[in-house]
C-alpha cells in the first residue's frame, strides 16, 4: 500500500496540486478511498483531512467503503428512465440479493450503482457491466449477462 501511496504522491505534484485528481488516483488504485490513505496524504501534504472528506462525499465518483468485484452501473438518464431503467435495477437487486438501502451484495461480489445519463440515449436503456456498455437492455438479457460472471 505504502508504495502505491508514494507513487500517487508523485502524480499529485505533477497535476498542479489538485486534490480531486489525487482522490481520483486513490479511488482508481484501491477501488475506494481508505481512511488510512486519506490521513497519510493529509499529513504529507498538510491539508486538513476534513477537506478531503468534504470533497470525497461531495462527488458521486468517490466511495468510502470497499465495493464489489463486479460493478454494474445502470444509467438513469431521461431516455433510460422512460425506457424502464428502474425495472432493470429492481430485477438486479433481487437477483443479486442486495439488501435495500445498500449497493453491494454481502459477499462483495457485486455492486449495483445508478449513474446520471451516460450519454448513450439512443440505445436506452443502458447498463454498464464492468465498464462494458450494453445498450437496449432487457431484464432477460441482463440476467443472462449477470449469470455469466456470477
Amino acid at each position: 500500500m505504502q508504495e502505491t501511496l508514494e507513487k500517487i504522491l508523485q502524480t499529485y505534484h505533477e497535476s498542479e496540486g489538485n486534490v480531486i485528481s489525487l482522490l481520483q488516483e486513490i479511488e482508481e488504485s484501491f477501488g475506494y478511498l481508505p481512511e488510512d490513505a486519506i490521513n497519510w496524504f493529509s499529513e504529507q501534504l498538510d491539508i486538513p483531512p476534513s477537506r478531503f472528506y468534504g470533497i470525497a462525499t461531495f462527488y458521486a465518483q468517490f466511495h468510502l467503503k470497499p465495493r464489489g468485484e463486479n460493478i454494474i452501473t445502470a444509467c438513469c438518464g431521461t431516455a433510460c428512465h422512460v425506457k424502464g431503467a428502474e425495472k432493470l435495477i429492481n430485477s438486479l437487486m433481487r437477483e443479486l440479493q442486495i439488501p435495500s438501502g445498500e449497493d453491494t451484495s454481502e459477499d462483495r461480489k457485486f455492486t449495483v450503482e445508478k449513474v446520471n445519463c451516460v450519454g448513450a440515449c439512443s440505445i436506452a436503456p443502458v447498463v454498464i457491466i464492468n465498464k462494458e456498455v450494453h445498450g437496449k437492455m432487457t431484464a432477460d438479457r441482463l440476467m443472462k449477462e449477470i449469470r455469466k460472471i456470477k
Binding site: 477537506r51 472528506y53 462525499t57
Partner: peptide, 10 residues
C-alpha cells in the same frame, strides 16, 4: 486556521 470541520455530502 484549523479546518477541523467541513461541509460533507451535498
Amino acid at each position: 486556521g484549523v479546518s477541523a470541520i467541513e461541509i460533507a455530502y451535498r
